[in-house]
Nucleic acid binder design. Structure first.
Lengths: 203, 203
DNA sequence: CATTTTCCTTACCAATCGGTAAGTAGCTAA
DNA sequence: TTAGCTACTTACCGATTGGTAAGGAAAATG
């Protein structure tokens, strides 16, 4: 009883269900039976499409990689200054991470886990992404003389600030109450923007 | 064949082994048998001391909580300005997180996981810690007029930047090579200090 | 109309999970 | 000397894990 129109869209259903569960419970905490259950089928249906849990996870990571690279170009325009480019990127990244932290949570888990899952697909997908960001930083007036590694640190620091806040969502809401958390989430993008401008020397 | 001198130190052996494994593989990815194996005993020896995996994990979190609160007071002196207090805190936190990221990795996993493990011990241990940091920020000249939530965001942002970099250690080393990573890790504390000063308005 | 392919099912499998039960060796205290 | 305690052990347990094998209904293809 296929519920999806095409083969690919059915696969995408599995990938999305897996991403949601893995973001919540982690790779080890997510069984393929639980993923299949989300679509109302048995785990053998999932294994039919992907062959193994690892392969399914690989497709989850591939999807994240695609979306990350898309954010890099989104909203970017020819005439923009490097400073404006970085502000645009972090504004969009921030907005997306706060709206749905699924990808960020999986990335963070992968950062910590991939030491185990040796030579896995998706291990290097962050590299061009980070290098592009570092290049942007190095193009700004304030960091023109900085080394590549110094520029990378500037980018990585802002990336970390946004990511950390995005994954803290459930804990902060519990700790300080939903209202306080909502207030913080509303203010957060401005805070990021302010810090970025201070660090880049724009203000 | 007890290998430790006292009962408490034997328990501490288990807690340390568990912390190392949980930091690496997560709670779900760490079996009590694997922890016991680190000490060369069977999992029943572990269960004899802690009764359950959850209880062992609770003690791991309690240890982290103690160490976090200790960092808050470490290096702080009476005559220090709020700005100097924050700089001191982040310098120490940064140093410790880079030297051994075990605690940070467990904290980050807990931030994402504790939605599942409902009403768990150690869920609120971060609260006084964060409130103390927010109070420090609110004492600075630049953020005196800010709301408590705005001040919290400033602190949280820096905490996130340091934590994210600390957990990225293995991935960054693989991505850019050990040398490049070491160079970044060496520069990172200064970068944090610079950003903090820019955000606090010290420079 | 017949055949193949797609997408799923039930029925298994060995391995591992957290945890219980029932000891046992060695030390301590009455 | 003996009773009890500590710190383990081996022997289990039911549940769950990822994965295989075989088959079946429906749709696509010849």
């Amino acid at each position: 009883m296929p519920l999806a129109i095409s083969k690919d869209s059915r696969r995408e259903d599995f990938v999305q269900a897996a991403a949601a569960l893995i973001a919540d419970r982690g790779f080890h905490g997510t069984s393929i039976a639980a993923v299949a259950d989300q679509l109302g089928v048995t785990k053998q249906a999932l294994l039919h499409h992907f062959g193994s849990k690892e392969r399914l996870y690989g497709e989850v990571l591939a999807g994240i990689s695609d979306r990350m690279m898309a954010v890099l170009v989104e909203g970017q325009e020819e005439r923009m200054s490097p400073e404006a480019r970085l502000e645009t990127f972090f504004a969009i990244y921030c907005e997306q991470a706060l709206a749905d932290s699924t990808d960020v949570r999986i990335i963070v888990r992968e950062l910590m886990d991939n030491k185990q899952r040796a030579e896995q697909a998706g291990k290097w997908y962050l590299k061009p992404f980070l290098q592009e960001l570092a290049a942007m930083v190095q193009d700004t007036g304030r960091w023109r003389e900085a080394s590549r590694n110094e520029a990378m640190l500037v980018a990585y620091q802002m990336l970390g600030a946004v990511s950390y806040f995005a994954i803290s969502d459930p804990t902060l809401a519990r700790m300080f109450g939903q209202d306080a958390h909502d207030d913080m989430a509303r203010r957060f993008p401005d805070q990021v923007q302010y810090s970025l401008q201070r660090i880049l020397g724009s203000i």
